[in-house]
Design a protein around this nucleic acid. Structure first.
Lengths: 188, 188
DNA sequence: GTCTATAGTGGGATAGAC
DNA sequence: GTCTATCCCACTATAGAC
């Protein structure tokens, strides 16, 4: 295995960041190759499917990153209420650290491409399902009834996504913090 | 006053629909003028500020439409729990009626433009604030304490937006329906 | 108020050398 | 694996006639 980061990985990483920041249509392949530092001629070699394929792999990278972040965050406490609440508070803190200028993972690509690219829509769908599963698993481990845990996993995911979207738009972490505050009510 | 719809209104209405469906960058001014039926040369006469100004007025139109829809929906019952729950259920039903292909109001433009156009960001922010106020007012009328009503208004807004985004991406109204189901828990 | 033409830019994608 | 050149297309915006 190579120690150095190869061109393909650099392209995916940069694409992942730029798509999240600027959205799908506003991000050009020129900008991606330039900022990635990858050779300019290598894009269509690694991604014969062009922009769509690159976006697909970028979504998968973002999804894995976020998914790991959720699972790691939920390990902070055996109590699911404290763990999930703490996780959302962490997101709020992280949001403020970047001045609310970091973009919203997955959501931009999901909204822009769900109706025009079924592969991209499915990738975003899979991402969200994995997020939900992470919450659901935590609740199952804590003894929640199966169906209840599944439903709450989805609802928590919706709250976090919605709060992220609102905090981003308002330039203010209040929605994220308020969602964190309501977690105990929801999980009572 | 003119009985017929003027060109400016037709442009705003079409822009509002297309931006919601396709997003900001994927929607061209050519398509808007064509589908609106407005004279092709009239766009920059009515909107000297170009695409940004048109989008601004489109966001305001969408915002007013959604805001009225919320207020109207919340009038269905004096009980805030039933009213809000019924409203979210109505959204879910409406979502399914259009096969989940109607796009998400405000969110697409918010995500695509918040970092590149402060006027558009503020328009989206104002839209969300109005949505939140509608929920908050309902809770205040029902006797909820001021601060609690404000916080819940924001949280309900985040849940609806998040559920809309997830339902749209998953092509499934389940997130919206599950959020409706949790409203009584949240507002207990 | 509306029309046409066009400037000027940048997009995604391909071909063929190396 | 990488590079350069290039094609074709779409976009926003402006100028100037009517």
């Amino acid at each position: 295995m190579t120690e150095k980061e190869n061109s393909k990985d650099k392209l995916i990483k940069t694409a992942s960041r730029l798509f999240q920041l600027q959205g799908y249509h506003a991000t050009g392949l020129n900008q991606i190759t330039k900022e990635s530092g990858a050779p300019k001629g290598s894009l269509y070699y690694h991604f014969p499917g062009g922009k769509e394929q690159l976006a697909l792999e970028a979504v998968q990278l973002t999804a894995k990153f976020v998914s790991d972040q959720i699972k790691c965050g939920l390990d902070s406490s055996p109590d699911p209420v404290k763990a999930i609440q703490g996780f959302v508070e962490d997101i709020a803190a992280q949001f403020q650290k970047y001045g609310g200028k970091g973009g919203v993972p997955i959501a931009s690509i999901a909204l822009e491409t769900a109706l025009i690219s079924e592969p991209l829509r499915k990738a975003c769908q899979t991402a969200y399902k994995n997020f939900q599963d992470a919450f659901t698993q935590k609740l199952l481990t804590a003894g929640y009834e199966t169906n209840h845990a599944k439903e709450l996993g989805i609802v928590i995911n919706t709250m976090v996504e919605g709060a992220f979207l609102l905090s981003f738009t308002m330039g203010n972490s209040e929605p994220l913090r308020l969602v964190a505050k309501q977690i105990p009510v929801l999980l009572q």
